[in-house]
């Protein structure tokens, strides 16, 4: 069975790029357009394998989403990788403290993205 990865990003084009990157790989891609939608999907899906998440989004940003999920204990054994234009150390540290496992600065290379998610979801 394919592993489910959720991409949380307000850009439909980025979500399409992520979907295209994983085409033919052993992953099923789910989508959310902001942090609020992300929490809804994550709460309603018990078999997610990993999350890719933007930082700057309307309604609820990715770091706050992560912190809420961490407080709810929802990130145990659920790797999260931030996929963003940001590279500020304070934001990277905040993500790490909230339980993120990686940080990718756009633009991303599809093969590198797939390799990263394979590594984090292995086993």
């Amino acid at each position: 069975m394919d592993k489910k990865i959720l991409i949380v990003d307000d850009s439909t084009t980025i979500r399409e790029q992520v979907r295209a990157a994983f085409a033919g790989a052993e992953f099923e891609i789910m989508e959310a357009g902001d942090g609020v939608e992300g929490i809804e999907v994550i709460t309603g899906c018990s078999d997610l394998a990993a999350i890719l998440c933007d930082v700057n989004m309307p309604r609820l940003d990715g770091l706050r989403m992560l912190e809420i999920l961490k407080d709810k204990g929802r990130l145990v054994n659920l790797p999260v990788v931030m996929l963003t234009t940001e590279g500020q150390p304070a934001l990277v540290q905040r993500a790490k403290a909230a339980g993120a496992k990686g940080w990718i600065v756009k633009p991303f290379k599809p093969e590198q993205l797939v390799a990263t998610m394979r590594k984090l979801t292995a086993g």
Partner: peptide, 14 residues
């Protein structure tokens, strides 16, 4: 002081 932790197109795993 504020050197970016991750550059454009880069990936880091914690």
């Amino acid at each position: 002081v504020f050197e970016p932790a991750v550059g454009e197109g880069e990936t880091i795993i914690f």
